[in-house]
Amino acid sequence: MGAFLDKPKMEKHNAHGEGNGIRYGLSSMQGWRVEMEDAHTAALGLPAPGLTDWSFFAVYDGHAGSRVANYCAKHLLEHIMGAGAPTVEAVKAGIRAGFLGIDEHMRGFSDLRNGTDRSGSTAVGVLLSPEHFFFMNCGDSRAVLYRNSQVCFSTHDHKPCNPHERERIQNAGGSVMIQRVNGSLAVSRALGDYDYKCVVGRGPTEQLVSPEPEVCEMLRTPEQDQFVVLACDGIWDVMSNEELCDFVKSRLEVSDDLERICNEVVDTCLHKGSRDNMSVVLVCLPNTPKVSEEAVRRDGELNRYLESRVEAMLSRPADEGFPDLATVMRNLSADGSMPALPPGGGLASKQSVIEAVYNSLSPYREEEGVSIRRAIRDFVASSSFDKSK
């Protein structure tokens, strides 16, 4: 089930790119977990004749180690690409064959075969051709498509308590306890996890844990398609499909820096209480929301309002005591006159801004002869503060 650190590791891995008429950004963060077990793939243009205008993105959420997730991030695409002619049905069959093939291939690795490494990984991805989306999912990471300003598609999480998954588990001689396979594993489909794939007389898709992906094909509608989000359950544990997409849309109206937006997503989820590794890939399509001067103005006003409120709270007489950050956040959450917060993110999406102001002022006391107001002026004027946020 995983152990936790005393404080979260907030360093982020970022990447971005542009091509084939799309842009992408990604962010991953270890968070409270003792190990970073997530991995990802981002490929603009596929390494096969005639497929340079295709793209592939995926997120892998490892558990019990990072071995399987990291290997899949490097090699799942090449297993999928062995399909032949890229007709719709051939691509769907190739995706399924690719998942089953890489799972069987990894079973031959000595550390996975002899049990010295018991890792496994979910996998969620999207393959984009000029005309189609091919969504694929194995486990409880998730992909959503935002079209015409609403969530129009989401992959299906594979949990042991789902009736179809439970039936397969029980038919293979297993059980579902505390919503886990045999009371232990929280997903019912995954790559790796070979301890759950050794029932004699049953095929790979009939085991306690199946490596078979669900594959869904959809026609692209360029005039309506806006963006795709792929993320592990460290994101979805604290944000619904609609909350995350509303938040992403609101941030796209403020900035076209996709890495920055993805960083805001993982920070917001951390502040909302996620205790897991967090990874998100944002794929922006030609009709993605554009930066709006009005949205930028409103966001700037909100930041300035929050700064002034924190300043006021920290400027109280010393005999009233210096409030801790939790008290500041509680007071702000009860503020009925606050300007509108980012939809889906709420006050948690502004905690980084609040913490920056708080940390800049907390060492200063009036009795030390340093003006709180001067301190905040110095902070706002410093290069470490981005006034565009």
Rank of each mutant, 00 (worst) to 15 (best):
W54R: 01
S55D: 09
F56R: 00
V59C: 13
V59Q: 10
D61R: 11
G62Q: 10
G62Y: 03
A64E: 09
G65W: 09
A69W: 12
N70G: 12
N70E: 15
A73F: 13
K74F: 03
H75T: 12
H75I: 05
H79N: 14
A83E: 03
A83F: 11
A83Q: 09
P86G: 04
T87I: 09
V88D: 11
E89W: 07
V91N: 01
V91P: 01
V91S: 02
K92N: 14
A93F: 02
A93G: 06
G94T: 07
R96I: 15
R96A: 11
G98D: 06
F99H: 11
L100E: 08
L100C: 07
G101C: 14
G101W: 05
I102T: 00
D103F: 00
H105I: 10
M106C: 03
F109P: 01
N114Q: 12
T116Q: 13
D117K: 11
G120Q: 08
S121N: 14
A123Y: 05
V124I: 14
G125S: 13
V126M: 02
L127D: 04
L127A: 06
L127S: 06
L128P: 02
P130Y: 01
P130M: 02
E131S: 15
E131Y: 10
F133N: 09
M136E: 14
M136D: 09
G139H: 05
G139F: 08
D140A: 05
D140H: 09
S141K: 01
A143N: 12
A143F: 09
N148P: 01
S149Q: 13
Q150R: 14
S154N: 09
T155G: 07
H156I: 15
D157V: 15
D157N: 15
H158E: 05
H158F: 02
K159L: 15
K159M: 13
P163I: 11
P163T: 13
P163Y: 02
H164Y: 11
E165S: 08
R166E: 06
E167Q: 14
E167G: 07
R168D: 00
I169V: 14
S175G: 11
I178A: 00
Q179W: 10
R180A: 13
V181N: 00
G183Y: 07
L185H: 08
L185Q: 07
A186P: 15
S188W: 01
A190M: 05
A190T: 08
A190R: 03
G192T: 06
G192I: 06
D193N: 04
Y194N: 05
Y194G: 07
Y196E: 04
Y196I: 03
Y196R: 01
K197A: 07
C198W: 00
V199T: 04
V199H: 00
V200E: 01
R202T: 00
